[in-house]
């Protein structure tokens, strides 16, 4: 349904008196992926790896630098805002902080109704009925409609955000950290709601989060992103049981497990994610680990290869064990 080819999203870095472009932040640097009907693709990575930028570029809140975004057979990569507006019915976004993404001066009815108004749908009476149905569907009472966002708790606000995203019956939704600001007991309610809605409306999700347990819970497939590139992509069970890329392994080993009897050896990474302004020439993660074979990766094609059916991993000698590297390169 959705196909992304070699997408790049670079932001110019300007400096000096004349604000000449002196470099670029390569937030998303050559990402290709596909999203099927009713599927959830999880996207994980450290902050600054470009996962939110990718999400925003896919719903065209940003204008991609290069590459292609195909929605069905329509290329939406470079459509103008007026061309894209009628298509926006099909793709929506749920944001991390519902307090910031809901207009504080609008009541809940106006917030949820707005998409209908923009797309000129329904009479006043019909819209009222639709809003009430949506509120009911996300588990809020009809009386909520006349209240304002500040009167709600974080979990309830996220429900409002979900109702707004659902209003136009979209085909796919980018969920950008939808539960990371919520308490665990509220988080489980929202996750259940998202899973239910997906079944009911046959929705596809691109689910962005830094909590790997949450991502695994909701996703069919998971993509791991590092410094603007996807380094591993596989079914969610597979990637957790049998990660191939060194970065995925490190990321998984860092997730704290809520069971004191489990004692694991953690892979501690040194330092932070390197800056996307001036990324290393070769393997970004090999560079972070000071891998002895790093020099070899400069100029090498590090794109994803299929190591097992449906399991894709970057062909990077610094990040794979020897057997996997031989399988992939030979």
């Amino acid at each position: 349904m959705l196909k992304v080819e070699d997408l790049r999203m670079h932001f110019p870095v300007r400096s000096g008196l004349l604000l000449k472009q002196t470099g670029a932040v390569k937030a998303v640097d050559g990402v290709s992926l596909e999203l099927g009907f009713g599927e959830t693709l999880g996207l994980v990575g450290e902050s600054g790896c470009g996962k939110s930028t990718l999400g925003k570029a896919l719903v065209r809140l940003l204008n991609p630098t290069s590459g292609r975004i195909l929605f069905g057979d329509v290329d939406i990569t470079h459509l103008s805002q007026s061309q894209i507006r009628p298509m926006r019915r099909d793709f929506q976004m749920i944001f991390q902080d519902p307090a910031e993404s809901l207009d504080a001066r609008m009541n809940v009815r106006s917030i949820i109704e707005e998409p209908f108004v923009i797309h000129g749908m329904g009479s006043r009476e019909e819209r009222k009925k639709w809003v009430n149905e949506l509120l009911d569907r996300v588990g809020l009472s009809g009386s909520s409609a006349e209240r304002y966002p500040f009167e709600f708790s974080g979990g309830q606000r996220q429900r409002i955000g979900i109702a707004r995203a659902l209003a136009l019956k979209p085909k796919w939704i980018v969920c950008d950290e939808p539960v990371s600001a919520l308490d665990v007991s509220v988080q489980s309610q929202i996750l259940n709601l998202l899973v239910d809605l997906q079944k009911e409306f046959d929705l596809s999700y691109l689910f962005i989060a830094h909590d790997l347990s949450v991502v695994k819970h909701v996703s069919d497939r998971v993509a791991v992103m590092y410094l603007g590139k996807i380094v591993e992509l596989a079914g969610s069970e597979t990637i957790y049981r049998n990660p191939r890329h060194a970065y995925t392994k490190a990321l998984l080993s860092a997730v704290p497990i809520p069971d004191p009897r489990v004692k694991r050896k953690k892979i501690l990474l040194e330092g932070d994610v390197p800056s996307p302004i001036d990324p290393p020439a070769g393997s970004a993660f090999g560079h972070r680990m000071n891998h002895p074979r790093y020099e070899e990766t400069i100029g090498m094609d590090l794109s994803l290869r299929e190591i097992e059916p449906g399991h894709w991993v970057a062909a990077d000698p610094t990040c794979l064990n020897e057997a996997d590297w031989e399988k992939i390169s030979g």
């Binding site: 489980s188 347990s213 809520p258």
Partner: peptide, 12 residues
């Protein structure tokens, strides 16, 4: 109520 790496995907 917390999902762990061991809970089945998309389970309630």
């Amino acid at each position: 109520s917390i999902p762990t790496l061991d809970t089945p995907p998309k389970s309630r």
